[in-house]
Computed example of a mutant assay.
Amino acid sequence: MASGAAVTAVGVGGALSVNASAQEAAPRTPASAETCYTLTSELVEGPYYIDADKIRRDITEDQEGIPLTLELKVIDADTCKPLRNAAVDIWHCSATGVYSGYESSGNGGGGPAPTGPPPSGTPTGEPPTGGPGGGGGGHQEPTDDDRFLRGTWHTDRHGHVTFKTVFPGWYQGRAVHIHTKVHVDGTWTDAGYEGGHTCHTGQFFFDEKSVLASAEVAPYSTNTSTRTTLTEDTIYPQNGHTGGLLYLKYDKRNIAKGVRAHLTMGVAPDETHDSSDTQPSPSASPSAS
Rank of each mutant, 00 (worst) to 15 (best):
R157K: 09
R157E: 12
H158R: 14
H158N: 15
H158G: 15
G159C: 05
H160Q: 11
F163H: 01
F163N: 02
F163E: 02
K164N: 08
T165L: 06
V166T: 14
V166F: 04
V166Y: 03
F167C: 03
P168M: 10
P168T: 06
P168Y: 04
P168H: 07
G169D: 07
W170N: 10
W170Y: 13
Y171V: 03
G173S: 06
A175N: 13
A175L: 06
A175F: 10
V176Y: 04
H177W: 06
I178E: 05
H179L: 03
V182G: 04
V184C: 05
V184I: 10
G186C: 01
G186V: 01
W188F: 04
W188N: 00
W188S: 01
T189S: 01
T189N: 00
D190S: 07
A191V: 05
A191G: 01
A191I: 03
G192I: 00
G192P: 00
Y193V: 00
E194R: 01
E194F: 00
E194D: 04
H197Y: 02
G202M: 06
G202N: 06
Q203E: 13
F204A: 02
F204H: 05
F204C: 02
F205Q: 02
F205A: 03
F206W: 11
F206C: 09
F206Q: 05
D207C: 15
D207E: 14
S210P: 03
V211C: 13
L212T: 12
A213R: 05
S214E: 12
A215P: 06
A215H: 14
E216N: 14
V217L: 08
V217W: 06
S221H: 12
T222M: 14
T222I: 12
T222P: 07
N223I: 11
T224N: 14
T224I: 12
T226C: 13
R227A: 12
T228S: 10
T229V: 14
T229D: 13
T229S: 15
T229H: 11
L230R: 02
T231G: 12
D233Q: 10
D233L: 10
T234R: 13
T234G: 09
P237C: 13
P237G: 10
Q238P: 10
Q238M: 12
Q238V: 08
N239R: 14
T242K: 12
T242W: 11
T242Q: 13
T242P: 08
G244M: 10
L245V: 08
L246K: 01
L248R: 07
K249A: 14
K249I: 12
K249P: 01
K252H: 11
R253M: 06
N254S: 04
I255A: 04
I255S: 01
I255L: 11
K257H: 08
K257G: 04
K257E: 03
V259P: 00
V259S: 03
V259F: 03
R260C: 05
T264S: 09
T264E: 10
M265R: 07
G266Y: 09
V267P: 00
A268I: 06
A268L: 14
P269C: 11
E271K: 15
D274R: 09
